[in-house]
């Protein structure tokens, strides 16, 4: 009899504490859901961590390709902030009346590098111009870094002659080269910095349109947590950090 009473009270206590815990976390600390384009994921994680330390607001990060995230948001995915790898998809959301234009901001500008890990010295632009093997790029049909890669190759008249391996996003292009399945690629400056690679050369900015990475606040509720995050992301310290991670 005593044992049953003990078990019942134990169950009740755990139910009660779980309930109050859930209540507390929904009211005080509703986590901020942030959708991040895959190239910016690592930096976003670091920034989110700093943000949580200062504000006490938890942050969940979901990363995928910009186009995938765009489609999820268009169909009502519960994200509070969207950090895209381009401006186009943000503008599409604005056109679809899903978001308010005044919540748009540019948080980083991406750079492309020619990365060729299998030579013992740092490659030059000349190496890039002369390279005739298969080249890993992000898909120029929809990936922002892929579009920049296409523009680059067109500007040096190599678009027609080069053989490409197209990754679904810029990280996959990186992965193709890292696994040695392709000898060189046009990848994100941020990737080679984060992975501490050495054998790369930065592609001049004149060779393609700037890869402006835009973001937007999707949820402008009374907590203003999303706006707070935006301010934090655009603060001088964080912008300095973003620059150190391979962005302009």
């Amino acid at each position: 009899m005593n044992r049953i009473r003990l078990i019942i009270s134990f169950i009740l206590i755990s139910l009660w504490s779980a309930h109050s815990f859930a209540l507390a976390s929904t009211v005080k600390n509703k986590p901020l859901n942030i959708a991040v384009a895959s190239n910016f994921k690592l930096s976003a994680q670091h920034i989110a961590h700093e943000f949580t330390e200062i504000s006490g607001i938890k942050v969940n990060i979901s990363s995928a390709s910009t186009a995938t995230l765009y489609q999820q948001i268009l169909r009502g995915a519960p994200f509070d902030v969207f950090l895209s790898a381009d401006q186009k998809h943000i503008d599409l959301l604005i056109d679809a009346n899903k978001v308010n234009q005044e919540h748009e901001f540019i948080y980083a500008q991406g750079r492309l590098v020619f990365w060729k890990p299998d030579i013992t010295r740092v490659p030059t632009l000349q190496d890039f111009l002369l390279y005739d093997g298969r080249l890993a790029i992000a898909n120029p049909k929809f990936a922002p870094y892929g579009i920049a890669a296409e523009e680059t190759l067109k500007s040096i008249k190599k678009w027609q002659v080069q053989q490409y391996i197209k990754g679904n996003n810029i990280n996959q292009a990186y992965q193709f080269v890292e696994s040695k399945n392709v000898r060189a690629g046009l990848v994100a400056y941020a990737s080679v910095i984060q992975k501490q690679q050495k054998n790369y050369v930065i592609i001049p900015q004149e060779w393609h349109h700037p890869i402006k990475q835009a973001g937007i606040v999707l949820n402008n509720d009374e907590t203003k947590h999303a706006q707070l995050f935006r301010q934090f992301l655009l603060s001088e310290n964080m912008q300095k950090y973003i620059k150190s991670q391979g962005y302009n």
Partner: peptide, 8 residues
């Protein structure tokens, strides 16, 4: 197909 969807 995935390519088409991603490019809208």
């Amino acid at each position: 197909l995935f390519d088409h969807v991603e490019s809208l």
